[in-house]
Design a binder for these strands. Structure first.
Length: 548
RNA sequence: GGCCCGUUGGUGAAGUGGCUUAACACAUAGCCCUCUCAAGGCUACAUUCAUGGGUUCGAAUCCCAUACGGGUCACCA
């Protein structure tokens, strides 16, 4: 019996060869510098911020070079697989307009290198494994979990390196006849790669972020095919897929750095050239004095849905990530306000290689505020409408009913050189403008600040309405009247005068304005009062003042 | 424990031997402007780049040790 016989016994139905697949998936015709990148998440049911951050790098790298960005679904761990996960990933990418050029969705394959779902690529992996068995670079391993655990304990005890390698690789030395007999007896097995590496030897590896690294050769006989479902492990699928699909640049988290030697040896076994690697720092979070990875359970902001639920503009989320990706992005963006992140030239070398990037929600808030402040009122309205339709139906109905009115509210102090920056996301709009709607105006708590005497408050309000309020006044006239009102009632109309002689007055024009402001809005802090009064109109104003 | 990566302010960080008495941005604080708030303007915020040695006329930048932090050592990705 030969290795070839063994290969046929294990994969009797695999007729296509590695050569066949190479022909089926020919090398991509790329022009100089064009990059092929991929986003390859495993469908676990949520989209992690860290994954999305990598997807952006993939997208930008491909876009910068006029290359291809594709989506590959890494569902080789069927235990963890979640039904809607693929849809969620696709929806998220679409929502942020980070669309892949090639992908598989709902049974449709877009692109010539599919399938793009690993579980549908089983025969391909099997053909590659079959070839490895034929050339004696892979073998079945019958070791049970308990045996492996024991072995590990032993290794720990004797301070040996942990793993399945060298003399610890028991099944490596099984004869072909022994193997065939075990298989015929129905023993369970995995397929392991037969490593030819020497842990004592080192090789140089270029990571695009960190530069040249010196790493020990791999000598572990890693599992490449699992026993129960015969699917490949990540390492093997990574090699086969990125080789066949012509990936030129692999963007992945730095947790993969330690398995680089494995991947390099795998590529070498097939005489293939490994892609370039960009190992990105993890996104971490500070907890007390230590930092840790952003976690799905503890940190709501780790999940992409958080940003949608809270109504952060997609552009702002991407921008905040861009500032982590390349810190010179902000400066570039200031100089090129009309361009999008896709026009930015990403350079891996400029990525931080330090432990991890702290994701700062304050920074996002700031970016988001600036972004929203630059939109037109109509644009903000449309976005608010889309958001509230999904996350605040009551408010959605209200703003739909009063569309023009709402746009006018959103337009307060917006059309000026330096627009207000009130809203950090769509969710924060309602708590800031609710009082503009009678339907929502049911709050009976007023805080009139400096003037507390109820009679005085009523006097100010009544005098104002009866003597001074005129709907048709322009802004200057309006404020002059508030000053006149102040003087009439013994308040300083000029702040400087008041500050010089506070004892001469009952208070000042700011106090008087505040009384009007609070009566109308319940809040002592609002945007321009004149604009608010103008929008509300006489009827609402009188009604609200009468409530006091 | 082995291997790998890293360590500049509250945060993201610029910086690759002299231009650095360490850029820019966020956050924070104060002042100014001002009818409130927001915005805006001004100012403050690391005498120092984890620590200790060394190389050099000169180091955050090069070398060596130490410390600390992180990652990884699965039939998970």
């Amino acid at each position: 019996m030969t290795n070839k016989d063994l290969a046929n016994i294990i994969f009797p139905n695999i007729t296509k060869t590695v050569e066949d697949y190479k022909n089926m998936y020919p090398k991509r015709e790329l022009k100089e510098g064009e990059k092929v990148t991929r986003f390859a998440p495993s469908p676990t049911g949520f989209m992690h911020l860290g994954g999305f951050y990598q997807a952006i790098i993939d997208k930008i790298l491909a876009h910068n070079s006029n290359g291809i960005f594709y989506l590959r679904n890494e569902d080789t761990d069927q235990k963890r697989e979640v039904k809607e996960a693929v849809e969620l990933i696709m929806n998220t990418l679409n929502y942020y307009d980070v669309k892949p050029d090639e992908y598989e969705y709902n049974g449709n394959i877009v692109g010539n290198y599919g399938p793009y779902i690993q579980s549908e690529r089983k025969e391909i992996y099997h053909a590659f494994i079959k070839y490895l068995i034929e050339i004696d670079r892979a073998y079945p391993c019958f070791c049970k979990k308990e045996e492996l655990d024991q072995m590990r304990e032993k290794q720990e005890k004797y301070k040996a390196r942990i793993g399945y390698y060298g003399r610890y690789a028991k099944c490596r030395n099984l004869s072909i006849d022994e193997i065939i007999e075990k298989i015929k007896n129905g023993e369970e097995y995995v397929i392991r790669f037969k490593s030819l590496g020497d842990n004592e030897k080192r090789f140089f590896f270029d990571d695009l972020v960190r530069g040249t690294l010196s790493l020990p050769e791999n000598d572990q006989d890693i599992v490449i095919m699992k026993s129960n479902d015969k699917l490949p492990t990540y390492h093997f699928a990574h090699f086969v897929d990125d080789f066949l699909m012509g990936t030129t640049h692999v963007v992945r988290g730095e947790e993969w750095l330690p398995s680089v030697p494995v991947h390099v040896e795998l590529f070498k076994a097939f005489d293939a050239k490994p892609p370039k690697y960009i190992h990105t720092p993890l996104i971490v979070k500070k907890e007390g004095n230590s930092v840790r990875k952003l976690s799905k359970r503890k940190d709501p902001e780790a999940t992409m849905s958080y940003y949608e639920e809270n109504g952060y503009p997609q552009e702002a989320v991407i921008e905040s990530l861009m500032t982590i990706i390349n810190s010179n992005y902000e400066e570039w963006h200031d100089k090129n306000p009309e361009k999008t992140y896709l026009d930015f030239t990403f350079s891996p070398k400029k990525m931080s290689s330090s432990g991890g990037a702290l994701y700062d929600i304050e920074k996002l808030n700031n970016i988001s505020k600036n972004f929203i402040s630059k939109l037109s009122a109509t644009e903000v309205y449309n976005r608010l409408s889309n958001w509230s339709k999904k996350f605040d139906e009551e408010f959605y109905e209200l703003i739909t009913k009063y569309k023009d009115y709402t746009i006018n509210i959103l337009n307060i102090e917006r059309v000026q050189k330096k627009p207000r920056k009130d809203y950090e996301n769509y969710k924060s709009i309602k708590p800031q403008i609710w009082y503009m709607y009678d339907e929502l105006f049911d709050k009976k708590e007023y805080d009139f600040q400096n003037i507390t005497d109820k009679n005085e408050i009523k006097l100010i309000l009544n005098t104002y309405v009866e003597k001074y309020y005129d709907e048709s006044d322009d802004k200057d006239t309006w404020f002059n009247k508030v000053k006149e009102l102040s003087e009439e009632l013994g308040y300083a109309s000029n702040m400087k005068e008041y500050k010089e002689n506070p004892d001469k007055f009952k208070g000042n024009v700011a106090d008087v304005s505040t009384v009007i402001r609070v009566a109308i809005t319940t809040s002592s802090q609002t945007p321009d009062l004149y604009e608010i009064l103008k929008l509300l109109g006489k009827e609402k104003i009188i009604k609200r003042i009468n409530l006091i």
